[in-house]
């Protein structure tokens, strides 16, 4: 029995919106365990969001419409991206809206507005955050494109549904090029989602923060939306990595039977992804800002070696 793809689409968007805080909660839990602290539980991010939604907004006098519009846009692009990446099923009606490059550009538009919002109030912190965020994004971009290039060489496509299909059908085991691209992608994910060693999501020390510096002036439901969108962004980047490199277990053609299995696989893979992130975050210290180019240089190198080894070895 088959389900209407639109229903799966709807379900998937609901999963992305609903599970993203739990994923962040899971990472925080793991981190607490690794560092020998008591955890606040898997559902703490939900409680944080609820609290923020019920609070009033305190807005600076000179905040323009850009500052007020940005949280909604961040949320909007994240939801749209959630409808495009094949997370539960390959057969999504909106999947053709964007290939990988467009998807990255969707995140770029969110970042563009967030950086503008950081500059809107006119504080030194906001400007600093924006400036650094754009610097890191600029350097991550070539590495990202190289990784995409490698993947597209192996799959002859940049369309996500097609990539998932090709890799899912086997014949792709043990390819050095994809392994290189995968390592590059992990490094880029850390940079783009503001994790250690590039940015510290938990910091409240002004001079070390990037993402937090931009959103310092947000409060109330605006802040809730920004936080939620950044949780979704992490979730989506991890899902993108899963879809592009290890899609096994995804529902192929909206069959009802495949769906629970797909959800099970997704949760298991997210659990492992969380573990990897936490291992990296506990193992490394946050870098000085001008060490980040070296870090992203390594990501670029990996992606380029992936591209080269595709031609040389595959």
């Amino acid at each position: 029995m088959n389900i209407n793809p639109y229903i799966i689409e709807f379900l998937q968007v609901a999963v992305v919106i609903g599970l993203a805080p739990a994923f962040v909660g899971w990472i925080r839990m793991l981190k607490c365990w690794f560092q020998g602290r008591t955890t606040a539980g898997l559902f703490q991010p939900y409680r944080d969001l609820r609290k923020l939604f019920s609070k009033e907004i305190v807005l600076a006098h000179n905040a323009s419409w850009i500052f007020r519009f940005t949280p909604y846009l961040l949320f909007g692009t994240a939801v749209l991206a959630g409808a495009i990446i094949p997370i539960l099923s390959i057969d999504l009606p909106l999947a053709a809206t964007a290939d990988v490059i467009v998807l990255i550009a969707l995140f770029a538009i969110a970042r563009f507005f967030l950086a503008l919002a950081g500059m809107d109030i006119g504080t030194a912190f906001g400007g600093m955050g924006s400036s650094r965020e754009m610097m890191i994004a600029s350097l991550a971009e070539p590495a990202m494109l190289m990784a995409i290039f490698t993947v597209s060489l192996a799959n002859k496509s940049t369309s996500l549904a097609e990539i998932v299909q090709v890799i899912n059908s086997g014949q792709m085991m043990l390819r050095p090029s994809l392994a290189f691209a995968f390592i590059a992608f992990i490094l880029i994910t850390l940079a783009e989602t503001g994790r250690i060693p590039v940015d510290n999501p938990a910091t409240h020390l002004e001079l070390t923060m990037i993402h937090e510096a931009m959103i310092l002036e947000y409060s109330g439901r605006h802040l809730a939306l920004v936080e939620w969108a950044s949780m979704m962004k992490l979730y989506l980047f991890v899902s993108l990595a899963i879809a592009v490199f290890t899609p096994w277990g995804i529902a192929v053609k909206g069959s009802l039977a495949g769906l629970p299995a797909a959800i099970g696989f997704m949760i298991a893979k997210l659990g492992i992804a969380g573990l990897i992130i936490v291992l990296i975050e506990t193992g490394l210290a946050k870098m000085r800002i001008f060490r980040v180019p070296d870090f992203l240089g390594v990501a670029f190198l990996m992606a380029t070696l992936g591209m080269l080894s595709f031609f040389i070895l595959d």
Binding site: L174, P176, F180, V298, L301, L305, S309, L313
Partner: peptide
């Protein structure tokens, strides 16, 4: 051939790692 190329990739990666 797959296995040897994978090992070759690892050799390449160690070469670059040594550079870095």
């Amino acid at each position: 051939a797959r296995i040897t190329s994978f090992i070759a990739a690892l050799v390449l990666i160690t070469s670059f790692a040594m550079l870095a």
